[in-house]
């Protein structure tokens, strides 16, 4: 039954996932940790960290959450729930896309949704920091990584490795 509940929750989430799975982090945390208590704060941040360190589309954090809540069936349920509804919709809509691309309402939604997506991703970052209960040294690393990655185009894996190293050496 928990698999079905997971599936339904994540289908609902997929309809508001403007900005992709990354923008969904705060809402996934709210549903999975606060509302249902399926995971605790620490596990949630760990799963986020694992997804960051793994190759593949960002959506796979959803797979990890499903796995931790309900095993393999849970992993498949959340992944499918996140991908399937919009895939079906886009399959049906793509041939007509060119006829409504550029319309005023289409432009208005594209422009209007952008600042909301920024807010969602910002919230996601804040929330990871809160849930992991970062001390000042972790916040310092976070700030350094943010500034460094804005100033150079180094591969993100480089920063992930740096984080793992700093953590592993017990600095955080």
């Amino acid at each position: 039954m928990i698999v079905l509940a997971l599936f339904i929750e994540f289908v609902v989430l997929s309809f508001v996932a403007f900005g992709g799975a990354t923008a969904l982090l705060p809402e996934m945390h709210r549903v999975v940790v606060l509302e249902h208590g399926w995971l605790d704060d620490t596990t949630f941040t760990h799963l986020y960290a694992i997804a960051q360190a793994a190759p593949g589309p960002n959506v796979l954090v959803v797979t990890l959450i499903g796995w931790k809540v309900a095993g393999l069936a849970g992993a498949l349920a959340t992944t499918l729930a996140m991908c399937l509804p919009m895939s079906v919709l886009i399959y049906l809509l793509i041939d007509r896309w060119e006829s409504f691309a550029g319309h005023r309402w289409q432009q208005a939604i594209s422009i209007g949704v952008a600042p909301l997506a920024v807010g969602l991703i910002f919230s996601g970052a804040t929330l990871i920091a809160q849930a992991a209960q970062f001390g000042w040294r972790a916040w310092l690393l976070l700030a350094l990584v943010a500034v460094a990655s804005l100033r150079s185009s180094r591969h993100p894996l480089w920063y992930i490795g740096l984080g793992a190293l700093a953590g592993g050496l017990g600095w955080l």
Partner: peptide
């Protein structure tokens, strides 16, 4: 993982 989460 804590370090990776901070970097992430």
């Amino acid at each position: 993982l804590r370090g990776v989460a901070a970097a992430g």
